[in-house]
Amino acid sequence: MSLLEVTGLCKSFPTRRDALGRVREQHHAVKDVSFSVEPGTTFAIVGESGAGKSTTARLVLRLIEPSAGSVTFDGIDVCALGGRELRLLRRRMQMIFQDPSSSLDPRVSVGESIAEPLVVFDRTATTKAQRTERAAELLERVGLAARDRLKYPSEMSGGQLQRVAIARALTLHPDLIVCDEPVAALDMSVRAQVLNLMKDLQSELELAFLFISHDLSLVRVIADHLAVMHRGAIVEQGPAEQIFAAPSSEYTSKLLAAVPVVSGPGSRQRRARTVMEDA
């Protein structure tokens, strides 16, 4: 059984209302999106800005309510759950954001940030010492030192902070981590380190990733399955290797052709590329 099953997901935002507050126009951010994520694998959603990737990610975690469609996590209908049950389910699905320096609280040490989910969910079941120990263990797990738990976000580099954000997402032993552009803000040499870390953690902990990115070359590294989104809809999905080898949709081909590569023709053989109209 799939870990995550998304069927016919739609989300529209009202863009204009009449005098009585009735919606006259709406923007369909996500249109009839369906996919499934298997345990321990990475499903990537790629697309350009405004394609609806992040909205889809938020819908999956039910951070926003869908207009239509369903999200089933491990056989449980996420959209039907009420407050308490939803909170319990959210232990098992975590999120990593693009910019770790703005997603971590600057006034709290990183150790406390990592242990905070335990305070929220298992305050009575754990002692403070246990929580500190868990934070130290997680920091070592993501390649930092246990003593780093005393540091504040301002004392760490972007790559280190993203490791902290990953550690925090792991605190409650989730089954699924939704990663929204997790390495887009990182430098190229650090980016490779963080992607390797994510792959290692995935194989050790049987994690599933829903990986949102605009960068096809990164997706190639980490994705098992892939969906390409354009203007709110999925235009193509399937095994990543297959899509990279032989994209079936014209849009995917254009996207792939637009990525500049080091091994391609250089400045002297300026290649004529398919240029898409800037909408």
């Binding site: 580099s157 190229m188 040499s189 490779a192 792959k199 070359s217 590294v221 080091v262 091994s263």
Partner: peptide, 23 residues
């Protein structure tokens, strides 16, 4: 060399060859 080897096209055994450490 490190920057070039760290690129996705030079992946070895499913892993990126990252330069260790930080700037």
């Amino acid at each position: 060399e490190g920057l070039l080897q760290g690129l996705p096209e030079n992946m070895v055994g499913g892993r990126l060859q990252a330069i260790p450490g930080n700037v």
